[in-house]
């Protein structure tokens, strides 16, 4: 019976927050799949089409080669996790604004809106992993036991990163709506500055420092190593968690500073 107390004084219990996030994620999944005959196929189709286009443009036309792996396989290992990041970040600016009526009328911890949107993108990413498996087998590679600890470990690091950044973007966009446009441009740029369609090994040595400064590069590289080699690189994992924690801290600070005014600004 204490749950309603959130409306007045006490902080909401963790189990209540978990319920709230669960219900919101369920809603997003149901809404996405209702009235669509192909359902699951759509969540795989999007990254697959992009991968196919890059394969043709870069792998076939420009004859880009990644030492050790067939190009389509290499591409998909980075493209799928990137797709999660891109769709969460692309949707982030509108998370609070699209829920304006809710924010104006009901008192609830608003950050759950961001968490549930990032989580449902995470679930979509996890659902696409069987496609990675199929492609590995097709090219004579195989999945590895190291995926069992590796996938949850990297997925959690990515959740921290994306959730933190999305929280910041969603909050700032309430007071500065132009951010939405900037995020789109920034994502485009970041995609090509992150080793998704190319590997670090073919980047000239003098530019490696820039890749090290890219906060999402360790994450993508860790996914590629895990999917392609079955290897969980401790250094990359550590770097991914470092940038995850930084994103989370920055996002939380910005959210804390701005959220008291959401009710009148959205």
């Amino acid at each position: 019976m204490t749950a309603l107390a959130i409306a007045s004084v006490t902080r909401p219990r963790l189990s209540y927050i978990a319920d709230l996030i669960l219900v919101l994620v369920q809603k997003e999944m149901k809404v996405r799949y209702k009235n669509s005959a192909l359902g699951y196929a759509w969540s795989v189709a999007n990254p697959l089409v992009f991968t196919a286009v890059y394969c043709v443009a870069l792998g076939v036309f420009l004859r880009l080669q990644i030492p050790g792996y067939p190009y389509p396989l290499f591409l998909i290992a980075g493209q799928f996790p990137w797709q999660w990041l891109a769709s969460s970040m692309g949707g982030a600016p509108m998370v609070f604004i699209a829920n304006a009526s809710l924010i104006k009328k009901v008192r609830f911890p608003r950050h759950v809106l961001v968490a549930s949107s990032v989580l449902s993108d995470a679930i979509h990413f996890l659902l696409t992993i069987p496609v990675v498996v199929l492609l590995l087998l097709w090219y004579g590679f195989a999945p590895s036991w190291s995926w069992l600890p590796g996938i949850p470990l990297l997925a959690f690091a990515q959740f921290l990163t994306v959730y933190g950044a999305a929280l910041a973007v969603a909050s700032v966009n309430v007071v500065f709506r132009d951010l939405e446009r900037l995020v789109g441009i920034f994502l485009q740029a970041l995609f090509f500055l992150t080793p998704v369609v190319y590997s670090v090994s073919i980047v000239p040595l003098q530019y490696h420092v820039w890749i090290r400064l890219n906060p999402v590069a360790p994450l993508i590289r860790a996914w590629q190593k895990l999917f392609l080699d079955g290897h969980l690189d401790p250094l990359l994992v550590a770097a991914a968690y470092l940038s995850g924690l930084v994103c989370l801290a920055v996002g939380s600070l910005i959210y804390r500073a701005l959220s008291p005014r959401f009710g009148e600004l959205v």
Binding site: L4, S8, Y16, L20, V23, L24, K27, K30, V31, R107
Partner: peptide, 29 residues
């Protein structure tokens, strides 16, 4: 506090009545 500032806050039109009861109830605390 039960703030009835708007009925059915958070209702989603694609979801069923039952699903919306759960969604709205949890949002309301």
């Amino acid at each position: 506090v039960a703030p009835l500032l708007e009925l059915g806050a958070g209702f989603h039109y694609e979801l069923t009545g039952r699903e919306n009861i759960v969604l709205n109830g949890v949002l309301m605390g």
